[in-house]
């Protein structure tokens, strides 16, 4: 697309504050067994394609050439061409893959096997399983440090964040967090690790150096029952200054100050919001709302919800193509 731009077009883009390159947004629909594709510029649905049985975790290679989907009930990862929406091949995943994280280099893929208390490491080039790492009960959340040296897995019934060395595949530390940890996310500087606890209702801010919990972020929303506040997805802006936390059936996204770890604001989105994804320019944040079958679009600069986009049945995960 860039190659096709004329000089005047480039000039025009340089003069505007927010250049709008269109990226494809892929949403996995857990119950609908398909993937909805949204154009990040027009914010319209541009396509839908089959996603295997119970598609949940979804991610894309750094070069934007391969889209990976955890097809939980197929016990494998399906790989798609993000341009043609055609399935190209599958990867072994171990049973019931739920969520995964790609190494910053694009290889390998670290997959949480929710039914089997394992993290499976798969080489996306050779399609070989490199390791199976025993972790706690119901592994789900997967995070990777920006330098790619540590992978974090959260186990939902054991209630721990497990630190896994990506060289040796050994667990180097276990940090006990609150009930049902769902998601692990480093800040881009690698100085903070955020772990959400769905039933505990908190986000633990862990110091990756000491593996100690420095702070627990709690949430309070007038008129919302405390039990309904169930933190799941977490995303951090590239400058590390703002942290967005999806609060499940509270139907809100919390905006948290990335420096003080204090909640700044709550944004009303659709029902049972779980996962989040930024556009590469961080103009928009997309949220998957599983009970209202839609995606909310947040204007990141203004922290305003600007649109809801109807997608498939029970949207679970979301990823935005890098190009």
């Amino acid at each position: 697309m860039k190659a096709a731009l004329t000089t005047s077009a480039i000039l025009a883009i340089c003069l505007t504050t927010a250049p709008a390159f269109a990226n494809r947004v892929f949403v996995s629909n857990e119950k609908g067994n398909d993937i909805t594709v949204i154009d990040s510029d027009t914010l319209e649905v541009i396509g839908t394609f089959p996603g295997g049985n119970r598609p949940r975790g979804i991610t894309i290679s750094p070069d934007g050439k391969e889209l990976y989907v955890c097809a939980s009930d197929d016990d494998l990862v399906r790989v798609y061409d993000p341009e043609t929406f055609q399935e190209t091949h599958t990867l072994p995943s171990g049973p019931d893959p739920e969520l995964f994280v790609l190494h910053p280099s694009g290889n390998p893929l670290y997959i949480a096997n929710e039914d089997d208390n394992l993290v499976t490491v798969v080489d996306v080039k050779t399609h070989q399983v490199l390791a199976e790492i025993p972790v706690g009960v119901e592994p789900e959340g997967m995070g990777v440090s920006p330098d790619g040296k540590v992978v974090i897995n959260t186990s939902e019934t054991t209630n721990m964040a497990h630190f896994i060395d990506t060289e040796t595949f050994e667990i180097t530390a276990n940090v006990l967090v609150d009930l049902r940890p769902r998601f692990a996310q480093y800040n881009p500087a690698g100085t903070k690790l955020y772990v959400s606890a769905e039933i505990g209702g908190t986000v633990s801010v862990i110091n990756p150096e000491t593996q100690q919990i420095d702070k627990k972020i709690t949430f309070e929303i007038p008129g919302v029952l405390p039990e309904a506040i169930q933190p799941v997805g977490v995303r951090v802006t590239a400058d590390g200054k703002k942290v967005y936390v999806a609060l499940g059936p509270a139907n809100r996204i919390a905006v948290v100050d990335g420096e003080t770890d204090e909640v700044l604001d709550y944004l009303l989105v659709g029902q049972r919001v779980w996962q989040l994804a930024f556009t590469p320019d961080e103009k928009y944040l997309f949220t998957t709302n599983g009970n209202s079958n839609d995606v909310s679009v947040i204007d990141v600069a203004k922290d305003e919800v600007i649109k809801s986009i109807a997608v498939g049945q029970q949207p679970w995960g979301v990823v935005v193509a890098p190009n």
Partner: peptide
């Protein structure tokens, strides 16, 4: 007991 032991392994 299986669930407890899996966690117990780390504790």
């Amino acid at each position: 007991i299986e669930d407890n032991d899996t966690t117990g392994r780390f504790m």
